[in-house]
Design a protein around this nucleic acid. Structure first.
Lengths: 251, 251
DNA sequence: GCCTCGTTCAAACGTTCGTTTTAATTTTAG
DNA sequence: CTAAAATTAAAACGAACGTTTGAACGAGGC
């Protein structure tokens, strides 16, 4: 019966290798034999320790998402405690949500950029078991942050906030999913551009740079003026009270 | 005279079905037998008409991306002509790039939302042949729009513009990839929120609504204030540092 | 010693994959 | 009309897939 008691390093080696290979090739294109071969364990070890391939993928995520979403909730708790019942600033909320994630990319013991890229790519996988798994893992944290954003932006229709949360998740996932995706479309390495220091092969620097660039973008999008709907039903109000509506970058 | 069952009928039926199934299941999880079965053609017809499965996927995209990127270039040509050598407004550039795409979602003869969702999901596929194919298909249009953005935002470092272009592509792809992805994370249907009229099953309305909400977000992100870099050894604000590294309490 | 039990191992299971083959059929052209 | 070419049909190919099997291994308690 597959029941783990001891902390066999076989189990962890499988998880580490699977995490990397799922990221590099995707779930379907990564075979059990690729995983067990790279991990130098027997082919049957995966089924013994995890049951089946689907369960292996779930476990790869469970061991990381547990930490991630726990810390996200704790970060939100801290903010709300020190706000003493008042509404939080949108920037605080985004920092707690996205910053916690991006900080995982700096810590190899938390999966580093490998896990972040895997997460970004897997969020678009259409397989049903993946979608339902993510839904259950994310349900609580998304609900808490949604409520926080509702309070932080009382003048913005809630549907609009959900849409923008969606947009932000997309921007983050693509940004995370790697330089790869960008290179596909732009044809260049981001790091090679505009006199920037060549990046050393260090996930810490990569993750920190990404965070520094992503957060302003997300905040700008979140606080953008509301769209004007071309429907007969009335005109929407303008921007939420926040400033920085027409701020041009630079200058 | 026999039926109009010409060869191109078989070819197009395969392409239409493959487009839909690749969108629903992803490339790897869609088998030739699923495609030929749903298209009601013989199994060998795919290999006869397209050569192999990879070439089929490429052809599915080629017939759409050709129109898309041609129109994107034409839209940019029009804008630059009427600007008479001057710089364009960022909103014009985004409208030409993303608006052209989103308008495909309103036109069933151009693939409609099915193709848009497929495109959004496929951009993250890690398979090498897909990446190189997209790189060649997108090379010209991306370069043109990049240059236009450089001129439109002369005070913004070019590396920053490339990053934000990346973020915008990500937000768009996720938004496009469907309500599915959002439902995974939020657990709700977007259309059910905040007193919005339930959407009728009409891709035209869906695509138009998406465009109206996405464009302000993208523009807000593109023009957000530039990030402050903490160049010397980490003197940034002390955010909730990594505490409680291995916590998975309750849940 | 022997027994137990969690783990590893080599081998094989049945299924499905993308592709090819061979023959029949339809379309095209002189 | 006839022959060649184009297209479809049915069956089979070998390879790879996820999974299962049953025996062997190795440490710990009696």
């Amino acid at each position: 019966m597959p029941e783990q008691k001891t902390n066999s390093d076989t189990r962890d080696r499988i998880l580490d290798v699977a995490e990397r290979l799922f990221m590099e090739n995707g779930y379907e294109a990564t075979s059990m034999r690729m995983i067990t071969g790279a991990a130098e364990v027997n082919l049957a070890a995966v089924n013994y320790h995890f049951g089946c391939k689907e369960a292996l993928l779930r476990e790869v995520f469970r061991r990381r998402l547990g930490w991630l979403n726990d810390n996200r909730l704790q970060a939100l708790d801290r903010l709300e405690a020190q706000a003493g019942g008042g509404a939080l600033k949108p920037s605080q909320i985004l920092e707690a949500f996205f910053g916690t994630l991006l900080r995982m990319g700096e810590d190899k013991t938390l999966g580093g950029m490998t896990f972040l890229r895997l997460l970004g790519r897997t969020l678009t996988e259409p397989a049903e078991f993946i979608r339902t798994f993510f839904a259950s893992e994310y349900a609580e944290v998304i609900d808490r942050y949604k409520q926080a954003l509702y309070r932080a932006l009382p003048d913005v229709p809630q549907a609009e906030i959900v849409w923008r949360l969606h947009f932000m998740l997309g921007a983050m996932s693509y940004a995370i999913a790697g330089t790869d995706v960008l290179r596909v479309v732009t044809g260049v390495e981001v790091d090679d551009l505009a006199g920037e220091r060549p990046v050393q092969d260090d996930d810490t620097i990569r993750a920190r740079r990404l965070a520094q660039r992503l957060m302003p973008f997300l905040l700008g999008g979140l606080r953008a003026p509301l769209p004007q709907f071309d429907e007969p039903a009335g005109t929407q109000q303008e921007l939420p009270s926040k400033a920085a509506k027409e701020s041009r970058p630079g200058t």
